[in-house]
Amino acid sequence: MSTKKTVVACSLSMREARSESAQEVLTAARLLAEPLGASLTWLVVGDAGDDLGEIGGRFGAGSVEVLRQRGDTLPGEEALVAALAAAFEQERPQAVVFAQSFIARSVVPRVAARLRSPVLMNVLSAAASAGGAVSATASAFGGDTHARYDLVGDPPHFLSLLPRAVSPLPVAGLARPAQVVERELPAPAEGDRVRVVERPRLLGPRLEDATIVVSGGRGLGDPSRYQLIEALAEALGGVAAASRPLVDEGWVAASRQVGLTGTVVQPELYVAVGISGASQHMAGCSAARVIVAINNDEKAPIFRYARLGVVADAAGFLPALIDALKGR
């Protein structure tokens, strides 16, 4: 048995490493490392980043390891799985914490399955005991329930943390920058079995990054009313999005879906129009600082999440709201 215990916080891209979600993951990993008496390592896939040592140090990482991608194209999922499985198989950290991104959803379960180690997705919180036991709470039934699990079996224990589940908490006092070491990301032995023939082309700004999001739901009643959502988004200086029924009906592109199985947004302002507030939808937007709900049913569950509410018919109220924003 190795005497030096570690817990790893893992960021799968440079963009992620520099975002708040990496700080959440570093915080969650550090809170596991402390009771385990383990040191914290931050593993980042990307190119060299001089700022990573400083960020890592601030959040308690003793070292930062950069797995350097070749060129500027992000490594494929197969390559990531192979590289991470190889790294963790050698070092067998106690736990590895990821931010649950689209790519993490595909990659993390495979790395864990390859190592036959416990894995939990949709994690809201995690805890460890000095004896080495790890337990974690995950969202289930779209958020209608929370399930608490003990993770047993050979480490590492893989945890995929939901965005905004943990608040970033820098270490107290003056932090020293962590030492950064770089390694080349190894190529998968079997080559990339999956070839990307057409990359996604994002139309418009990334929903994830938007500071203002306006979403329409089934209460709009008619596809043509979605234009009101776009107009309101424009008037507010935000991005238009939707609940799943509108995507299912083909009114709106799938990349605009907010929710458990869509994008998790964390804007300053989230405006939900004609959306009932099902937990699967709220899983994607409850991290917003301010939620405004516009719904004609005063009993709609969305009002339990909203800071501000207007009980009104969407078709009647949105033009008035757009006018008010334009100062008319």
Partner: peptide, 8 residues
Amino acid sequence: TPDGDETV
């Protein structure tokens, strides 16, 4: 994908 369709 969240960025639109990807073909593999």
